[in-house]
């Protein structure tokens, strides 16, 4: 599983970090910083939850 993150439309809701703290970190402004573009199997649920809760639609999950 991979994460596609559109930095341009992230506006700092930080919902990804709330739902998937081990997958999505935050920068100093509270904007998303995915910890890694590749998601290990044990974190896939967090990755999906975080992406689905982004109000901006800035996160896309690619299931390989």
């Amino acid at each position: 599983m991979r994460i596609l993150f559109n930095r341009r439309i992230c506006s700092g809701h930080a919902r990804c970090n709330e739902k998937g703290p081990d997958v999505y970190g935050l920068d100093e402004m509270g904007y998303c910083l995915p910890r890694s573009p590749i998601v290990p199997p044990e974190l896939e649920e967090q990755a999906r939850d975080g992406a689905r809760n982004c109000p901006e639609g800035a996160l896309t999950i690619v299931e390989d």
Partner: peptide, 13 residues
Amino acid sequence: INNHLAFGSGPHR
């Protein structure tokens, strides 16, 4: 799934 816009969207979030 609760991607609500209560706080707005975009640069004025």
